[in-house]
Amino acid sequence: MNSYKNTSEAVLVEKMQRGDEQALVEIIRRYETMIARIVIGMLGNTAEAEDVGQETFLRFWQSVGTYRYEAKVSTFLTRIAINLSINELRRRKNRYAWLELTDDKPIQYEFTDPQDAFQQADVTDQITHALTHIQTDQRVVVILRLIEGYSTRETADMLGIPLGTVLSRLSRGLEKMRKILRNTEQQ
């Protein structure tokens, strides 16, 4: 059924450039989880996140004709996903600008030991919640550096910011996440 399972990325891109949709399907299969981590990390587990995820692959499909391997497919997709997520956050902010969307409810998550946490189904929810409550610029850096595993230099290059800024955003983001995750313990 999946004839492109062992096909190299370069060949898949060539096939996409010739309009082969099955090659796109294979690219989606390979990178769906990565894009889900980025987009859901950025936007939370919402319907918009799935839309942005789909749009990421559609944009890649549309721009594949001009794709010249300057960046790996994963990096190219990551950039698209981050940009689209930021656009979506801006749209969301404008859409709800007239509403006060402050969540005064105390956070109901516990900061559990990771060993135990791995076994819990809601670890993803905890992290999503904490991630979506830190500033966007910090969130992007946390996702790229700590979740996707890009190096500090790659993260800085991708976002066009100095190394020191990456480190600052990481420390502030982590500190905020720490407070969010500890919130219940302190109450």
Binding site: T33, I40, G41, V123, T124, T128, I147
Partner: peptide, 8 residues
């Protein structure tokens, strides 16, 4: 975070 694995 390294085990953050949401799905569509």
């Amino acid at each position: 975070l390294q085990n953050f694995n949401p799905q569509f």
